[in-house]
Structures are given as structure tokens and as C-alpha cells.
Design a protein around this nucleic acid. Structure first.
Lengths: 259, 259
DNA sequence: CGCAATGTTGATAACAATCAAGCTCGGTGG
DNA sequence: CCACCGAGCTTGATTGTTATCAACATTGCG
């Protein structure tokens, strides 16, 4: 379960206790970026005091999404970007014949909806992998503020560009790697991202099924299961259901090769 | 689907000025965006008269890149985005052990270098597939101008976001499609992009080798060759070396399926 | 012309998909 | 409380697609 993940850096995360600033406190249980434990990794991470407050007024709306339900669906009008506050999401493309393809998993501090800017309409379903919470960032207001705050514009461009880099990594993986390399790269990627959030790098919980992992990596669920078993047999990892412990990250890295 | 770039109304492309097929005959007749035949599809396509002139002053520098040489290399500092004026490029990631992975092909009117914004350093080699010409757009100046010109900021975000969509299409392809589907999707993508530039949709010239196509699609060059031969046998296309004619685009589309 | 780069085609092998059976764990209801 | 159920997971047997190895054809260029 989630609780078994070890928190290395003491960053308390208590949504219900965090106070918000300003006037709308009475009407909405809301949270300010200035007190959010994710402020070091989230979109407004470059903003100075005054600008951060202004950003807070844009991103006041929080939204809870129950496990399995969608934050938005393909075809929805694009109104806002979403920053994951807690929980996790998958982006799912659905074809006309019902086939699904997962294009990404999204952890806290990561932005959802970027690919919808261009068409002005979402092209994917964003489905919560567990009960989750997001900050809604209305895009029109964000663009307006970015005009006035150079560092925000820059940060926004950086975040989007970073998304492209991440996708290129996955393309690499899908195009040229064996099943073992894909799994190794996947585990290392999760490890790095959890670490960035202040969790242990070598021990974490998969929030997605084998089937979802396989879908994402371009493999079948059986292959995912087999490779994980093989990794365990070879002492690279210890896997118990969704609990993963990386026992030999170096060997995993060697498997992937150095890009 | 696959390679959606900038979404704008297509403006007729004048083959007499910039020739895509056959020998490349680059033109110097116009250096200003305001007179460029790509202005309908390129980055500044939303700009009004005065802003377009200002943009012209940012993007004055043209650069020629000979076939096979690099516009920039992995590790280079990120200074500018590049708009392809004529010719074509590939983006190549190179691993420490020399393995290469092509993440994209870039036709006229498309932007190069977007994925370097976040790290501030290029992560790929941009290699010209034929003698080519690009417009250099210094990024610092572009960001500055985007602060003052809302439509430019918006367009910039759109273009980058569009790149993400394009990459997702490729991920889909790499993750779930057979060799036949990949080739079909690839040909249709090229067809659409040439059409956008004002060329015939059903007849074009591949600027890249079978090996490069295979690398991009996650296939070997032999498989690419075999599938093209099969397509020809089945009357879907006519292929003679690099010349391609789509004889039955509908059948190709059916092969890919509808995403 | 001759050579190197590119492309085609065939034979074989490897890897992952598919098909199939059984297991584990958590939840539910008798 | 326990038996049952089903989703998720593991493992085995077999098949199929594509990679690999290999030989040869074609093109373009110095």
C-alpha cells in the first residue's frame, strides 16, 4: 500500500490542515502554493513571493478525483492545466474500436493536460490510479500571468519542453529496447521520480496493474510478470505484488545502457 | 495522429521557389518572414503586420546546412530554435556506446530544438537529410517578444504542445502497432505533411534511407524493405527507390486503424 | 569503370504474443 | 468465521512476428 513507502525527507503533507491565504477561505477548502509541500517541484517553483501569491489566486481550485474516475476525457474542451497534488494518474488514449494506449503516468508535482493546448481539446482520458487531488490552473489566466511574469513564462516553456524530453525517452524505449530493458528503465524512472518527491528511491509501490505497465511499455501483462520474476530470481529487485524494492539499481542501469 | 505539427490554414507552397523533390535549389530571394512562402505554416503565422516585422528582426539569421552535417549537436548550448525553411532534418539521439535513435523527421515549416528548452542544452543531433536552410530564432529574444505579444506566446505554447501530441502518436505506433501498421502510418504522415506544404499528397520522395525509417519506426531496414515490397505487391503503393506513390490511401488508413 | 552505399530477398533464430491453467489476496455474504 | 468469488498475478506450452545473418542487386559517384 501507499503507506509502506518510506519518506526520506520530512515534508509533511496534510491537505486538511494547510491554511489558505486570502478571502475565499470560508467558501472553499483550498490550499496555497506558498504552503504546499510540492512547491519545490511544481510549476510555480521559480516564482518569488509576490508572484507566488498572484499565482495562488489563479490556482485556487482544488479537485478531488476518486480512484478509477476521470479528471477529464478525450474530447473535453481544454480549459485548464492540472497539477497533481496527491495520488496519481494515467493518460489513456482510446481508439474508435476501444483499444487503449497509456501514454504516461503522472505523479504529484507533475502537470496534466499539456498536449491539449494545441488542439484546444483534450485527446486523452486522465484517470486516477488512486484517490487523488489536483490543482486546477485555468489556462487563459495562466497565459495572461505569463505575459507579466517572465520567470513564469520561462518555467511554463521549460515544463512543456521537459515533457517532450520525457516522451522522447519513452520513444527510445519503445523503439529499441527489449522487454527487460523496458522494465528496467520503467523501474528506474519511477525510482527517480519518487526520490524527487522526497521518497526513498529504492523502495516504492506500483500504483498500476501489470496490464497497465505492459500497455505503457508496449508489452503484454504476461511478459511484464515474467520479466519481474526473472529480475527477482537474479537478485535485481524484490517484488511482492505492488511492492518493489530495487536491490541492484546499478545492474538495472547497465541493462538499460547509457543514453 | 502521427506527425501533427502546427495547425493552421495551409497556404499554397511554391515549388518554383523552394524545391522539395529532386535536386535542392535553395533560394535567397526572400529572407523576411513577411515574404516567405512558409508564413502560413511557420511559427509567426498568427502575427499581424507590425508584430511580423518585429519578428523578422529577431529571426534575421538564415543558415545553410549541407546534407549530412549537423545544425546542432547533443551537448551544444541551447541558444535558438530553428525553423526549417527548405530541405529536411532528422533528430538523432546518440548513446554512449554509439547507438543511434531517430526521434523525428522535420520538414519545412517545422521547428527544431524545442526539447532543449528545459535542460538548456541540446540532447540530440539535428542532421540535414539534404542541403537545407533554416531560420535561426534566438530563444532569449523570442521569449522577450512573447512577453509583449500575447498571440506569439500563445502560438509558441501551441507549437510546443503540438510536438507533444506528435510524440504521443509515435509512442502509440511504437508501442502497439505491427510493422505494416507502422509503415502505413509513416507514409500517411508524410503524405499529410507534404500536402500541408502544398505538394501532392499521394506522390512524394522519401528523403531518408530505409535504415533511417526503420530506426525511427523501431524496425530493421530489412523489415522496412519487405513491408514496402508487400504493400506494392498488394497494390497499396508504388515504390521505386525513394519515390513513393500512394495508390490506396484508404486501405493504408484501414490498416492503421482509427485512433 | 569500379567501388561504396543503399536496397532487396531468402533462411533461420530469437523474442515476445497468445492461449491456457492455476495461484494469491482481499472482499463479501452466508 | 469461513467459504466463495473475482481481479490481478504467475507460470507453462506453443505460435507468430520480426530480428539476424547472408547473399546478391541496384544506384550513384569519383
Amino acid at each position: 500500500m501507499l503507506q509502506s513507502a518510506i519518506r526520506v525527507q520530512p515534508i509533511p503533507f496534510k491537505p486538511s490542515l494547510v491554511r489558505m491565504n486570502g478571502q475565499s477561505a470560508a467558501t472553499r477548502s483550498s490550499v496555497a502554493c506558498s504552503t504546499c509541500c510540492l512547491q519545490g517541484v511544481c510549476l510555480p517553483c521559480d516564482l518569488a513571493g509576490g508572484d507566488l501569491e498572484r499565482f495562488d489566486q489563479i490556482a485556487t481550485q482544488k479537485r478531488r478525483v476518486a480512484r478509477g474516475s476521470a479528471l477529464y476525457r478525450s474530447g473535453d474542451a481544454f480549459e485548464a492545466l492540472y497539477a497533481v497534488r496527491s495520488g496519481g494518474f494515467k493518460s489513456v488514449g482510446v481508439s474508435q474500436n476501444g483499444d487503449e494506449k497509456i501514454t504516461g503516468f503522472h505523479l504529484p508535482g507533475e502537470l496534466l493536460g499539456l498536449e491539449a493546448i494545441s488542439p484546444g481539446r483534450h485527446g486523452y482520458n486522465a484517470v486516477a490510479l488512486e484517490d487523488s487531488e489536483v490543482c486546477s490552473i485555468p489556462f487563459a489566466a495562466l497565459e495572461r500571468m505569463a505575459l507579466a511574469v517572465p520567470s513564469l513564462q520561462h518555467q511554463l516553456l521549460r515544463v512543456i519542453s521537459g515533457d517532450i524530453s520525457r516522451d522522447h525517452g519513452l520513444m527510445l524505449l519503445l523503439g529499441r529496447m527489449t522487454a527487460e530493458q523496458r522494465l528496467a528503465a520503467f523501474l528506474l524512472s519511477l525510482s527517480r521520480r519518487y526520490e524527487r518527491l522526497g521518497f526513498a528511491a529504492s523502495r516504492f509501490v506500483l500504483r498500476m496493474t501489470r496490464e497497465e505497465i505492459g500497455n505503457y511499455l508496449g508489452l503484454t501483462l504476461e511478459t511484464v510478470s515474467r520479466v519481474l520474476s526473472r529480475f527477482q530470481r537474479e537478485g535485481l529487485v524484490h517484488v511482492q505484488q505492488r511492492d518493489v524494492e530495487l536491490k541492484n539499481a546499478t545492474a538495472l542501469r547497465d541493462l538499460v545502457g547509457h543514453w
